[in-house]
Computed example of a mutant assay.
Amino acid sequence: MRTLTTTEGLAEFCSEASQHDYVTVDTEFLRERTYYAKLCLIQLAMPGKDDDTAVLVDPLAEGLSLDPLYELFRDESVVKVFHAARQDLEIFFVDAGFIPAPLFDTQVAAMVCGYGEQVGYERLVRSIAKTGLDKSSRFTDWARRPLSDAQKRYALADVTHLRRIYENLAAELERSGRTHWVDEEMGVLTTPDTYVIEPQNAWLRVKTRTSSPKFLAIVRELAKFREAYAQDRDVPRNRVFKDEALVELASTKPRTPQELGRSRLLQREARKGAIADGILAAIEAGVNCPPEDMPKPDRTRDKLQVNPALADLLRVLLKAKTEQFGVASKLIAPASDLDSLAAGLRSVSALNGWRREVFGEDALRLCAGKIALTAKGERIEVIELEDAT
């Protein structure tokens, strides 16, 4: 089990990896006490059948630079293969300001190939690599050195088995003509906006039961302060104050330290110092927000006139398409898309790209009364109405 601790060693491996069609990648990190993930280990593997073509990279090693890895990540001739890549990509985007490309996410590919919703790596190892995983080191402290042999074996398994999984899924996508489906999905993962949280937009993540613009103005300012504070000090946003406390503060609107001290849900550390000052300033800004600058709640869905019978038919059609194509239903169309279609809206993801080929076209024809659905045994089939007389 090779562990690279020098820039020279990493550069040598990356140079060799650049001669291959793909490289598998995984990371181990900690995030419980920080806003940004702390990268503790990087696992890499080139094509091959043994562990000699796989390495561990120790980003905590003194003097090691990840520049050779980032050069490999920018090499368009080498596919970078991850499983459930989002958090890994966020780490590299925050550190280096770019996203590895071209990219292949085996979790997305597995959903396209009929393995179900959000399929886990362990299941793919069993199904495709025909072996099991030792998960005993899953929740260990990856920042502690030296790493144990058990930790190293666990970490390497996340990229060595990934080679066979990738090759199997890529071949299946090519055989079924669905490679471009996965390419479309990679577009979301490779968009920088996916990994950037602007403090002024942080309020959109807070769930509230009130849609009053005045109330939301205070929520916006409190969330903005919390996000900026957490980013500047690299602490989890919930360590500043939790969503429940934020909503309570927006409701009670304390204006003085004494009033703030009466909050039921605010942690004691947040009732004094910079956090308390920030909370009171945010509430003041929200209370005094001009009406024209207040958040405008999205009431589009509240006004939807959903045809419930049509929505039910669309769900039946989606189930039929899911079974026909062997693709996870949530990947094709979430429930919100079906309700939107049944209400006459057409700006939904189910009508774009490969989703339109699989489901969208027939969904539109169903809405227009051009097709009907019939049950034949356990199967649901589409019938052209012109031929159904």
Rank of each mutant, 00 (worst) to 15 (best):
P257A: 04
E90R: 07
R31N: 03
M111A: 15
S349Y: 09
D337E: 13
K135Q: 10
E184R: 13
L313C: 03
R271E: 05
Q151I: 05
K303S: 11
R356I: 01
R262L: 13
T179P: 06
H161Q: 12
T27S: 02
E378H: 12
G286H: 00
L266N: 06
E292A: 10
E122T: 11
A309W: 07
V94A: 15
R268A: 14
G132V: 13
L338M: 08
L4I: 14
L216A: 01
R346N: 07
R33D: 12
E244A: 15
R205L: 11
E227L: 07
N352Y: 14
W203R: 03
L351Q: 02
A155D: 03
A109T: 10
T190N: 04
G177R: 08
K130N: 11
S65E: 13
F29N: 04
G353K: 11
T190L: 06
K49T: 13
D149H: 12
E62V: 05
H161S: 08
Q107M: 15
E8F: 10
P334N: 12
A375M: 11
F225G: 02
R164S: 14
L266A: 09
P334A: 12
N352P: 00
R126H: 14
Y70W: 14
Y121E: 04
Q305Y: 07
R301W: 08
A171Q: 10
K38Q: 14
I275G: 01
H20M: 10
L173R: 08
L351D: 04
Q43M: 06
R144T: 08
A109L: 10
V327E: 07
D149W: 07
Q87F: 08
R233M: 04
L204H: 14
L10E: 02
L10R: 01
L41D: 00
L4D: 00
S212I: 03
D337L: 06
F325T: 11
L173E: 05
A11W: 03
T53F: 02
I275H: 00
W203K: 01
L156G: 00
L69P: 01
C40S: 09
L266F: 06
I42R: 03
V94I: 13
S251D: 14
P291N: 13
V78A: 07
L314D: 03
Q87T: 12
L64T: 00
G187P: 08
K370N: 11
R33V: 08
T300K: 13
T7V: 08
V112I: 14
A250K: 02
E184N: 10
R315V: 02
